[in-house]
Design a protein around this nucleic acid. Sequence first.
DNA 1: TGACTGACAGATTTCCAATTCTGTCAGTCC
DNA 2: GGACTGACAGAATTGGAAATCTGTCAGTCA
Lengths: 194, 194
Amino acid sequence: MAGPLTREGILDTAEQVLRRYGPAKTTVVDVARALDVSHGSVYRHFSSKAALRDAVTQRWLDRVSAPLEEIVAGSGSAEGRLRDWVRTLAATKQGIAREDPELFATFRRVTDEAGEVVAAHVDHLAAQVGRIVADGVASGELAAVDPEVAGRAVLRATALFHHPAHADEWGDPRLDDQLDAVLDLLLDGLRPRS
Amino acid sequence: MAGPLTREGILDTAEQVLRRYGPAKTTVVDVARALDVSHGSVYRHFSSKAALRDAVTQRWLDRVSAPLEEIVAGSGSAEGRLRDWVRTLAATKQGIAREDPELFATFRRVTDEAGEVVAAHVDHLAAQVGRIVADGVASGELAAVDPEVAGRAVLRATALFHHPAHADEWGDPRLDDQLDAVLDLLLDGLRPRS
DNA sequence: TGACTGACAGATTTCCAATTCTGTCAGTCC
DNA sequence: GGACTGACAGAATTGGAAATCTGTCAGTCA
């Protein structure tokens, strides 16, 4: 990490250190040591350990929601995009849990501790679903529901498949089918009565 | 606790001790002391501390599902009973969390540790929903879905409102409305296309 | 001048010895 | 004979001293 000490540089290193040592054992001193500076310097850029943790979390969460944004902006049917969106969210979260447990543990712990950051993330996700629903309502493909309410309801109804609190229930191989069953119900509910 | 030492007597006392001392600090020795017997005697009736814990859990869970059984056996419309059933389940769990936090903490911890007992409980609940759905399908009130699949889907889709893992999200006063929004979607999905 | 250091107080965590607990079983008591 | 006890080994937990960490700031250096 040569060059001047920047917020981004600190975040890059903090992320590596977190992945290596895990959430519980990572200290600001560790991060500073990896950067070869005193820990006082880190506090020049982040006002507290919590602020640093939140900033790292923010980046992780943004990386989860960015690919979803493309689905929202896509051109298929609202129903297709809704399915795709929820499946992608579930697959992303479950994928992290499976392949990078250390990262996921941090993720999970942080869900408990960085409440504000996570709440903003959830709002953001709900808004994404809301936009797909709004598209569908506008084109007459979906029933005339309140997109914001419906968006949040879809997110809540599928919590079991993407919420970190349920990670230990993700071993079941029929999980994908069960998500499809829930989606079938929800999408039927959103389709207009003909 | 005079009289002979019985499984039921031990369970009664174990429950009291758990409520008083909390899940983490309760030992088999504590339970035995409250019964005024040696802890060896407790092991005569339960093969391990885990077995004792599971038996207490079993009783708690049965007390949750018993009142639901009445709703299943009720005579109203399938849709009405489904709403009633889910709302009652959510209200029961949330009520315990609010009014008896010590019990709920045990409940929650036990959800993690007594996997088998809890899995059986969830199966039981899913079957109850399945029976209501089956009634509705038989009478033509609901669309011709697989009752077992739909039952489990309803349970999963409403997990956020009754699953102990989500207890810290139950502070929101609009929670009831949000559950209703999810139920609206799900029940719309279950109604037959006219 | 302003990024960085290093020493510091108080809070938190770690570590290890001492205690307590779990699960077993030979022996007591009725 | 069968319900119960009490002592035991190994595992788990606790308590408290020692070490480390967080957050601050006066001082260095370029």
